[in-house]
Design a protein around this nucleic acid. Structure first.
Lengths: 170, 170
DNA sequence: TAAGATTGACCGATCAATCTTT
DNA sequence: AAAGATTGATCGGTCAATCTTA
């Protein structure tokens, strides 16, 4: 039973738990790889860069301070800074100083960047449907989302916070 | 409703679907990062290298041909080859020619590698429990595993095959 | 020649150190 | 000094090319 310890004091997984764990590990490998591959092939961006463009496209004024953008796209400041440099290089994003107190730099989507995300989003949504949304029964999808939120709450409270704020419509 | 198309012919996600999708994306970022961080901190290996050592430790004779090991640890041959080179460098794995027809190289766990995985596994299992297994109700975990298998089946049939064989006790 | 395996160049991410502004 | 942001070294992974053996 759960909570049992062997003589080393280790609470090993049961056979059933191992089964579900291995299935989850397979998902963690296969799904991001498939999404990345589609975006890279059809759009020349990776999944993180797509999230950056998508977050900007939904923001008021199509602009966000770097630190908020990092939280929304679930990456470190460093990762974001490198990514924005790349996106700036191809003309989809620009950096500029920003007015608000304390904050210094905001990234904003250029006209070309707006066109790019409009062009790329439909394919990405199609892939999301093909791999997940249309594969699962509605109740199964609902349960998956709820379970994901439970796990993220423990694995990374910071991401969980940003997610909840985003889902609430912040 | 699902299946509806706007005038661009795109079947966008509903608000509810977007909610679950974003939750899943957050999981895909947060969970591997947390598992990786624990292993890197406490054991000096990443999640993929851990899977390599774990797969070898469960194999008969603690050895596997490179191609089978790649499938079991869910990586490309190239990724595995680089990883095994690293693990060889620290003395946990060795390469050697192998007898069976057609096959050429097998990786096997050294005595030091065996000790290493024995030492590291309990912490990894503890983390798996803390982040997932003990967070979810048994039925929720079961559903997560089943859903993961459904998605993997579409996203990567090759990984799905290996997973099913592994779960059947191959 | 096809499958198994390796290699090296390149790219993207992390980490620690640094710069900048309040 | 603290928060926001950037930088550069380094590491790990991918990709395409190559080598090897049945």
């Amino acid at each position: 039973v759960a909570g049992a310890h062997d003589r080393d004091g280790v609470d090993w997984l049961t056979a059933a738990q191992q089964r579900e764990w291995k299935s989850l590990m397979a998902l963690l490998i296969a799904l991001p790889a498939a999404l990345d591959a589609q975006l890279k092939r059809d759009a020349g961006v990776n999944l993180f860069e797509y999230h950056v463009l998508a977050a900007l496209s939904e923001a008021p004024g199509r602009a966000l301070p770097m630190s908020e953008l990092a939280a929304l796209s679930r990456g470190s400041m460093s990762r974001l800074s490198h990514a924005v440099s790349r996106l700036e290089g191809v003309g989809w994003v620009e950096r500029r100083g920003c007015a608000g107190a304390g904050r210094r730099i905001e990234a904003h989507l250029t006209a070309a960047g707006w066109r790019k995300i409009q062009e790329v989003a439909p394919d990405h949504v199609r892939e999301a449907r093909r791999l997940v949304i249309d594969v699962l029964a509605p109740e199964q999808l609902r349960a998956l989302g709820a379970t994901a939120r439970d796990v993220v709450g423990v694995a990374d409270p910071g991401i969980a916070d940003t997610l909840h704020r985003d889902l609430a419509g912040g």
